[in-house]
Amino acid sequence: MRASRVLAVPGLVVRHELRLLGSLWLWAVRRTHGTGGGGTAFGYARGQGAMMFGFAFVCVIESVMVSVLLRDWPAVHHAVLVLDVYTVLIVIGLHAASVVRPHVLDAAAGTLRVRRAVHVDVSIPLERIASVRRELRATHERTDGELDLAVGSQTSVTLELSGPVVHVAFFGRRREVGVVRCHADDPAALVRAVDRAREGRAGTPYPDRGPWSSM
Rank of each mutant, 00 (worst) to 15 (best):
M52E: 09
F55E: 13
F55T: 13
A56W: 03
C59D: 14
I61Q: 09
I61K: 08
S63N: 10
S63M: 09
V66I: 15
S67Q: 08
S67T: 09
V68M: 11
L69S: 14
L69V: 13
L69R: 12
W73T: 13
W73K: 07
P74D: 04
V76K: 07
H78P: 07
H78R: 07
H78A: 15
L81W: 06
V82H: 10
V82S: 13
L83W: 11
D84N: 15
V85P: 06
Y86F: 12
Y86N: 07
T87C: 12
V88R: 03
L89I: 13
G93E: 03
S98E: 10
S98G: 15
V100S: 08
R101F: 00
P102T: 08
V104S: 06
L105E: 09
A108M: 09
A109P: 13
T111C: 14
L112V: 12
R113W: 05
V114F: 04
R115V: 00
R116S: 05
A117N: 07
A117E: 05
A117Y: 02
A117F: 06
H119G: 10
V120Y: 01
D121I: 05
E127V: 06
A130F: 00
A130M: 04
S131L: 08
V132L: 05
V132E: 00
E135M: 10
L136N: 05
T139R: 06
D144S: 09
D144A: 11
E146C: 05
L149T: 00
A150D: 02
A150M: 06
V151E: 10
G152K: 02
Q154P: 05
T155H: 03
S156I: 05
T158H: 05
L159N: 01
L159Q: 00
E160N: 14
E160C: 11
E160V: 10
E160T: 15
L161C: 08
S162P: 14
S162H: 13
G163F: 13
G163I: 11
V165A: 05
V165P: 04
V165Y: 04
V166Y: 06
H167K: 01
V168F: 06
A169P: 08
R174N: 06
R175G: 11
V179W: 01
V180K: 00
V180C: 00
R181N: 03
